[in-house]
């Protein structure tokens, strides 16, 4: 039993990725995706075209729904890089606090990726269903994708003293700098 738990712990330690490495792999992944996109399908370059009747307007092209999988992979990389950057802000915290805030950040980013996937994989632009003035997918983009990050803002405001800094430690820091300057 002891050997088993030691093995599991060792495995888990191996899986524990440092935040900077996590970010690095995310950026590398996103770079490879963009590179492959640029090299694979250049025929999709000219997506939008000028409106037949009005020169100042653009209309969507014929290739609109052909790249859902690529779009998802691109989003995945994008959210990964965002999460990696966000996690850098937790490095100074104690283990327990760090674990809690990192769990919240990871959960939020997964939720955000799900919302983006919902848009990517559902290509119906229906005239018949409108939510607060917009077709369903557009409403998801405006209301859900637009406002879901308020969750993280709430965390920032609510747990500022615990996760970010207290006024007392800032004053101490100011004092320390002032005393050095004297």
């Amino acid at each position: 039993m002891y050997v088993l738990s030691t093995l599991v712990n060792q495995k888990l330690n191996l899986l524990k990725l440092k935040v900077d490495r996590f970010l690095f792999i995310g950026v590398l992944f996103l770079s490879l995706i963009v590179l492959s996109l640029l090299m694979v399908s250049p025929e999709a370059s000219y997506y939008q075209t000028t409106h037949l009747q009005f020169n100042s307007l653009m209309t969507s092209g014929e290739t609109s729904d052909q790249h859902s999988l690529y779009s998802f992979i691109f989003c995945f990389g994008m959210v990964w890089v965002y999460l990696g950057s966000l996690l850098l802000s937790t490095r100074h915290l104690t283990k327990n606090k760090r674990k809690k805030i990192q769990t919240l950040m990871v959960s939020f980013c997964l939720g955000y990726l799900c919302l983006l996937s919902l848009l990517i994989f559902s290509n119906i632009i229906s005239d018949s269903y409108f939510y607060l003035g917009f077709p369903r997918n557009t409403a998801i983009m405006l209301y859900l994708i637009g406002f879901s990050p308020l969750f993280l803002s709430f965390v920032y405001v609510r747990y500022f003293d615990i996760l970010i800094i207290t006024e007392a430690s800032f004053k101490n820091f100011q004092k320390q700098i002032k005393s050095q300057n004297k």
């Binding site: 996109l37 969507s60 609109s64 691109f74 848009l119 632009i125 005239d127 077709p135």
Partner: peptide, 21 residues
């Protein structure tokens, strides 16, 4: 939304005319 959609559904869709990427 309906006026824009009747002319070009993609324009009022979430990606607009520019497309997803």
């Amino acid at each position: 939304s309906q006026i824009i959609a009747q002319d070009d559904a993609g324009a009022i869709g979430p990606w607009g005319t520019l497309g997803a990427f």
